[in-house]
């Protein structure tokens, strides 16, 4: 019987293992220590690792994110929690001008081995200010990396890679996935003795032959549900490609899949204008135009600030039904 682990528990295991591996790793953020994490992702770690390694910060994102960046220049490896990625806005100058740019502006004399992480999703009834999905904005900045795991297995393996990476990594989780469980083998069940997934490697989550559904983060789960419906109700075989990291990007896996199915839709909970799907759709048509039997389409969150009203919020984000409908339009 494979081990089942929730997304939050998988992340916690990654932190625990990296805290043990490298004494320079320190976890920081609002309520991460004594409160055990606003979403319980860091539960139990303060008890185990103490004040030096698990640090509660005041509500002061520009200050403590900037502080983590400064400490990373000296070789500390901070893993900084934003209680919501939505709060990136108040730390934006530090993230962009310092974490992402300082290596370049110093001619390569400095690097910032920092991870900034937290949930970045809508759909939880908290209104527009707490529902931002800034992965496309972050990925727009050379110097940063951007990771969006869709499940517990990937979350653990990618977090370990993010912490060991010597560049700033923006790691985007989902409160809607924290409680979901997946098969996550324990280290003694793994050939390498640990779960480690390099950044920049996409994963085919479901094989198919008629259309490729490409996605990141929770939209991958939406695509998997849509693929089941397409197969069961319409006899359409959909392949689902989870890009896992947005920057660096595994283009080969996407292109191989689309060259096989000849149809593609990018699905994401981000907004459409200059979204991740815009980049991927451009890349597909410019690279393998002749392989396409239909225009590359995309499905995004409906293009307005996140609405509060629960029944409407539920349809503002992509649903399996919408994905099915769009797929049928080109199959």
């Amino acid at each position: 019987m494979p081990r089942r682990l929730s997304y939050r528990h998988a992340l916690r295991e990654a932190f625990d293992e990296e805290l043990a591996r490298d004494p320079m790793v320190v976890l920081m953020g609002e309520e991460v220590a004594q409160y055990n994490g606003a979403y319980k992702v860091t539960e139990g770690l303060w008890d185990k690792w103490g004040d030096d390694r698990i640090v509660d910060t005041p509500i002061s994102e520009a200050g403590f994110i900037g502080m983590g960046i400064g400490a990373s220049m000296l070789g500390v490896r901070p893993v900084m929690e934003l209680m919501f990625w939505s709060f990136y806005t108040v730390a934006w100058d530090q993230i962009v001008n310092n974490a992402a740019m300082v290596r370049y502006m110093s001619g390569g004399k400095i690097n910032c081995p920092i991870v900034i992480r937290g949930p970045a999703n809508g759909g939880t009834g908290v209104g527009a200010t707490h529902s931002h999905t800034p992965e496309n904005i972050l990925a727009n900045f050379p110097g940063m990396k951007c990771v969006c795991p869709s499940n517990a297995y990937d979350a653990k393996g990618l977090m370990k890679a993010a912490i060991r990476d010597n560049d700033p990594v923006m790691f985007m989780e989902s409160t809607k996935l924290y409680g979901e469980e997946w098969d996550v083998p324990s280290n003694d069940e793994l050939p390498d003795g640990e779960l480690f997934i390099p950044l920049g490697v996409a994963d085919v989550k479901r094989e198919g032959s008629d259309i490729t559904l490409i996605a990141h983060g929770r939209a991958v789960i939406t695509c998997l549900k849509a693929a089941e419906i397409l197969e069961a109700e319409h006899g359409i075989s959909a392949e689902v490609v989870d890009i896992r990291t947005i920057r660096p990007l595994d283009e080969e896996t996407i292109l191989e899949s689309v060259a096989k199915t000849h149809r593609a839709i990018y699905v994401e909970e981000n907004k459409p204008f200059c979204g991740v799907g815009a980049q991927i759709a451009y890349m597909i048509q410019s690279t393998i135009f002749d392989e396409l039997d239909a225009p590359v389409l995309r499905i995004n969150s409906l293009d307005a600030p996140a609405i509060y009203s629960p029944p409407l919020e539920a349809i503002q984000l992509p649903t399996p039904e919408v994905v099915v409908e769009k797929a049928l339009s080109i199959c």
Partner: peptide, 9 residues
């Protein structure tokens, strides 16, 4: 904040 981070380090 970076100066603060150097001190933290």
């Amino acid at each position: 904040p970076l100066g603060l981070g150097l001190a933290y380090g």
